[in-house]
């Protein structure tokens, strides 16, 4: 008797449960947000002369579930020349727990104010809880235009892996 009722109950519940599972796991199967994988222009070469980092904001078209947005800020980066004069860019997202990394001009080092991680000018961890150095971003120069490819990386891990 109860088995019969149970079987019918499963049928009736399945009507809702099956599509419910499909709908709820949608974000596992399909990306719901997307920024830009392309290089984003951030300025002219002349803006980034010297080893003192310059903060740039990165703008891109984005899609967020049902919305698309044109030219919105998707992140920022620190840009500077390294000792050899090469342009390097580093994400402002702290690899520890994702706070925004600031630059301490007095001591010439980067600092994450949330949990006191300190990074050297080239992005290496000096002290603090960050498991790895600041995440570098790919830089490209075309003529005198500088462009950066913006990516987010997994937080809290030793290895730098794109999200």
């Amino acid at each position: 008797m109860l088995a019969g009722a149970g079987a019918r109950g499963v049928c009736v519940a399945g009507v809702t449960a099956a599509p419910a599972v499909s709908v709820l796991i949608h974000p596992l199967r399909t990306p719901t947000t997307s920024g830009s994988d392309a290089y984003i222009p951030v300025g002219k070469l002349a803006q980034f002369v010297g080893t003192t980092p310059v903060k740039v904001d990165l703008f891109s078209d984005t899609v967020d579930a049902w919305n698309r947005a044109v030219h919105v800020k998707i992140g920022s980066a620190w840009v500077r020349q390294d000792a050899e004069g090469q342009l390097v860019a580093m994400s402002t997202v702290c690899p520890h727990l994702g706070c925004a990394i600031d630059y301490d001009a007095d001591n010439s080092k980067f600092i994450c104010p949330c949990h006191d991680s300190f990074f050297s000018l080239d992005g290496g961890v000096e002290t603090g809880p960050s498991p790895r150095g600041m995440d570098s971003l790919e830089v490209q120069t075309e003529g005198d235009l500088v462009a950066i490819r913006y990516q987010r990386f997994k937080q809290g891990t030793d290895a730098k892996e794109p999200v």
């Binding site: 009507v15 949608h26 399909t30 579930a65 049902w66």
Partner: peptide, 18 residues
């Protein structure tokens, strides 16, 4: 958001329809 559920999420239209 309704169009997204209905047309882009698998089985979303079933939820709405039911």
């Amino acid at each position: 958001s309704t169009a997204y559920l209905n047309d882009q999420i698998a089985s979303g239209w079933i939820i709405r329809g039911l």
